[in-house]
C-alpha cells in the first residue's frame, strides 16, 4: 500500500494499486449493485463548509440572551441623581425613565437595554436586589439574570475564572469550541485521505457496458 504525494489533490495511491482497484471495481458484482466514482459535487462541498461556519455562528451566544443585572447598573445609579429625582417629582415616572435611557445612550449595553426595556416600577423592584449583590466581593453582575421582579444567579457553568470560580455566562469561546476545531480538522483530514486513496475521480468504472441488467446510462459521461 504505497503512498504517493506528488499530486496530493488528485490521488495519494500508487499507480499499481489504482490499476488493481479499477479492475476490481469494474469486475465485481455486489449483489447486482454497482457504484460510480463521481467527485463530491461542488455544491456539496460548499454546503459542508457553510455548515461548519453556521455551526459556530449559531452556537456562539448571539440571540436569545436574557437580560443580566449588569445592563441595569447604570440605570440604577442614575435613579439617585438629583436630576432624575426632580424630573420624577415634576413630570412623573415615565419622563424620568425616558431621561435615564437618554443618559445611557452610549452605554456598552445599549443593544441589550433596547431589547429588554424596563419601567421605573421594575427598576424600583430590582434596585435593592442588585445593590445587595454589588456588595459581595469579586462579583460579576453579568453572572446574574434579571427576569421580571427577580435577580438570580444564572445556572450556566461557564469558563473558570483565575480565582477558581466559574463564569456563569454562556461563553463566546471555551474548550468545547477548541475541541470542535480539533475534531473537525481530524474529520476533514481523514475523509480527504480516504477519498484520495481511491482512483482519481476523472476515471469512471465501465461496469454497465457488458451487463444488460443494469443501468442504461452512466452519470457524467
Amino acid at each position: 500500500m504505497p503512498w504517493v504525494f506528488n499530486e496530493p489533490l488528485v490521488t495519494l495511491t500508487h499507480e499499481e494499486t489504482v490499476a488493481r482497484s479499477k479492475q476490481l471495481w469494474e469486475a465485481e458484482d455486489l449483489g447486482g449493485m454497482t457504484e460510480d466514482n463521481n467527485r463530491l459535487p461542488v455544491p456539496v462541498v460548499v454546503l459542508v463548509l457553510l455548515t461548519v461556519a453556521t455551526a459556530f455562528l449559531t452556537t456562539i451566544p448571539l440571540w436569545g440572551q436574557r437580560p443580566t443585572a449588569a445592563i441595569y447598573v447604570d440605570y440604577i445609579k442614575a435613579m439617585d441623581t438629583p436630576e432624575i429625582q426632580s424630573i420624577q417629582e415634576t413630570q412623573g415616572d415615565d419622563a424620568a425613565m425616558k431621561r435615564i435611557v437618554e443618559i445611557n445612550k452610549d452605554s456598552p449595553f445599549k443593544a441589550q437595554q433596547g431589547r429588554h426595556p424596563v419601567s421605573m416600577n421594575d427598576l424600583r423592584v430590582i434596585k435593592p436586589q442588585i445593590e445587595e449583590i454589588m456588595k459581595l466581593p469579586d462579583v460579576d453582575l453579568k453572572d446574574y439574570t434579571v427576569v421580571g421582579p427577580e435577580v438570580k444567579i444564572a445556572n450556566f457553568e461557564g469558563n473558570y475564572r483565575p480565582n477558581g470560580k466559574r463564569e456563569r455566562q454562556q461563553p463566546w469561546w471555551d474548550k468545547g469550541y477548541t475541541i470542535d476545531l480539533f475534531y473537525l480538522t481530524m474529520f476533514f483530514l481523514g475523509v480527504t485521505i480516504t477519498v484520495k486513496r481511491l482512483p482519481p475521480y476523472h476515471w469512471q468504472p465501465r461496469h454497465h457496458d457488458n451487463d444488460p441488467r443494469h443501468g442504461d446510462r452512466r452519470h457524467n459521461v
Partner: peptide, 30 residues
C-alpha cells in the same frame, strides 16, 4: 440499497458514501 437496486442505476458516488459514513460516526456520536 433500494434506490440503485430498483432503478438499476449505479450509486452516484462511492466517494460521497465515504463522506456520509464517516460524518455519521464522527458527528452523530457527539
Amino acid at each position: 440499497y433500494v434506490i440503485p437496486k430498483v432503478t438499476g442505476n449505479p450509486l452516484y458516488s462511492h466517494r460521497i458514501g465515504h463522506l456520509h459514513f464517516w460524518s455519521i460516526v464522527v458527528f452523530y456520536s457527539t
